[in-house]
Every structure is written in C-alpha cells, then in structure tokens.
Amino acid sequence: MNELEQLAKTDTFINDREAIIDQLMEEYSDSILYLVITYVKNQTTAEDLTQEIFIKCYEKLDQFKQQSSLKTWLYRIASNHCKDYLRSWHYRKISLNEKIWEYIPSKSTNVEEEVIAKSQESNLTNAVMALPIKYREVVFLHYYEELTLAEISKITTININTLKTRLKRAKEILKDTIEEAYDE
C-alpha cells in the first residue's frame, strides 16, 4: 500500500493515474460498495455511486496529500459523495415515493421470509440500517470497518467527542430495537 501512496504523491502521468485507480478498485471496491449501501440502502444506486466515486478519485488524485492514508482519503470522498446524493433533489423526490409504499402493508410476506427476518443476523442488520444516518455511519465505520474514532473523524470531518456521543446514543437505540424484536 505504501508503494501505491508513494506513486500517488509524486508527479504522475496519465497512465500511472489510471493504474492507481485500477489498484484502488482491486483493493477497495467491495468495501466502498458496502459503505455506500449502508448510506443509500439500495444496491443498484450504490453501484452507480461507487462508479462515480472512483471516477471522482481519478479527477482528484492530484489533491491527494500524504497527511492521510490513501484509504482514508478514498473513504472521505465516498462518504461525501453519498451525503451529496442523499441531499440531492433527485433522491428526495424518489425516496418520498418509496416511503409512501412503505406505509402500505405488504400482503405477500411469505413464511420463509418471516423465518429469515427473525434470524439474529437480520435483526441486527435491520436495526443498524434503520438508524438515522448520523448514527448509522459511525456504527458502520467503527464496528464493521473497525476504524478508530480518530480515523472516522478524518473521514467524516466530525470531531471525536461528537462521534463518541453518537456512538453511545446509537447503542442505546439499537439495544431497544433488538430487545423489542426478541420480545415479539
């Protein structure tokens, strides 16, 4: 990885930049996709956004300074891109339509799906995915990506104390949600 960072830092010509993006995709494209899914909750949208994120990285490669690791830099671009998307007019219009559908109870839930839904893993995942974004993001980065709060702070540009508070609050919400699920 250091070699790659070295390459990114020095004056690079076009072919090298392309090679850097290739290697970044090789190493991180699935992780970035997971991160994006966590933000936008839709796999196809997430794939589109991930594509855009790597193109953005290519455009911004000149701006990469070695104050952070290439991974942190990539995650920050991804996180910002997702937040921009969630703020966009397009998303808010689409999501409103989808939300209306969520309020209409589905009749087609079959037994099998219900069984899966009861599994511990689904309960935990659903509970995390149901968190408001500011909690979901820190929970994912800390517990899934196993990043330190300092690293998360660099990615999200949110200060560490705020992150601590959010993580604490997120755990409280999760505890309630999961206990509720077991009581049912």
Binding site: E18, I21, D22, M25, S29, D30, I32, L33, Y34, I37, Q43, A46, E47, T50, Q51, F54, I55, Q120, E121, S122, L124, T125, V128, M129, V139, F140, Y143, Y144, E146, K171, L174, I178
Partner: peptide, 28 residues
C-alpha cells in the same frame, strides 16, 4: 451485539453485493 455486526451484515445485506468486473470496466 455489535461485535457481530461484520458477519451479520456479510450474511445478509452484503451477501449478494459485489462491485462487478463490468462496473470496473465502466469506470476505466
């Protein structure tokens, strides 16, 4: 329970998710 988050998400929401070769070619 969050200590199991990684395996839980891998087995559920991320199970089918992968940034395909076609997607990478599109980026290129």
């Amino acid at each position: 329970p969050l200590s199991n988050l990684k395996s839980a998400m891998n087995k559920t929401i991320f199970k089918e998710a992968s940034f395909s070769k076609e997607r990478r070619i599109a980026v290129r």
